[in-house]
Simulated scan of single mutants.
Amino acid sequence: MAEITKEDIRKPENLVYKKTELLTDKPLSYCPGCGHGTAHRIVMEVLEEMDIQDKTIGIAPVGCSVLAYEFMNIDMQQAAHGRAPALATAVKRLNPDKFVFTYQGDGDLAAIGTAETIHACNRGENIVIIFINNGIYGMTGGQMAPTTLPGMKSSTSPYGRDVHMMGNPLKMTELVAQLPGTIYVTRQAVHTPANVRKTKKAIRKAFENQKLNKGLSFVEIVSNCNSGWKMNPVQANEWMVENMFPFYPLGDIKVND
């Protein structure tokens, strides 16, 4: 029998790709290089590995995240813009035996949905909030969001965000970590295999917390928006590492075991 070399393993015809059954077969409609697809897969893999897919309800509001129900092969419910935590609260209280999570972007969660986010976290609703932060309104034209960095250009801040005129970026994850109802608050990323593993571990911990009725778990995923940032995917990832991560540092912020 011939010895298998590294070159053989790297050949495309020899690569084995196993897709979780909890992702639909519909091609992803996100921009090439976007982190949403990776985040979707991680969440669905966790649900499959925990064998809770039949007990889980996802809530997707307005923004790029609204497309999640086209790709996640579980029970999903759309919410009005910013209202996902309020809807998730109702779903969980009416179905306490279900696993409930929201999947939200920064324009949704940190702008129109600020009140719903803050109060759900403060009450300690036994849900999981997954927060994709790319520092911009991605779906509607690349406008400045509450998370847009100082000096960062967008379609509504073409010369960069001026904090004296436009205010400071909102660090939602640090903010909700101060609230008594949050049990686990973390910030992760999905741009490298190592970060994907860390993010998957964080999401698994969040759903395990819900299983144990511990309270609200909040998982932020810092991502790119190469279309909104007017960069190719490689440039966007590099810009994210050099600019987003110093302002939004990765790692666990609050862990109450």
Rank of each mutant, 00 (worst) to 15 (best):
M1T: 15
M1K: 15
I4N: 01
T5R: 09
D8Q: 08
P27S: 13
C31P: 03
G37W: 10
H40S: 03
R41T: 03
E48D: 11
D51R: 15
Q53W: 13
I59Y: 06
A60I: 10
P61E: 05
P61M: 05
G63Q: 01
V66Q: 14
I74T: 02
G82C: 08
T89N: 04
R93H: 11
P96S: 11
F101K: 10
G113V: 09
I118T: 14
H119V: 11
N126R: 04
I130T: 05
F131C: 01
G135D: 09
Y137E: 01
M139F: 11
T140K: 09
G141Y: 09
Q143A: 01
Y159W: 13
G160F: 07
M165Y: 13
M166I: 07
M166W: 14
N168D: 12
T173E: 03
T173M: 03
A177L: 03
G181L: 04
T192A: 01
P193R: 03
A194R: 04
A202V: 03
I203M: 03
R204G: 02
F207N: 07
K214S: 04
L216W: 02
S217C: 08
V219L: 01
S227N: 14
G228Q: 06
G228D: 01
V234G: 02
N237V: 06
E238M: 04
M244D: 12
Y248T: 08
Y248S: 05
Y248I: 06
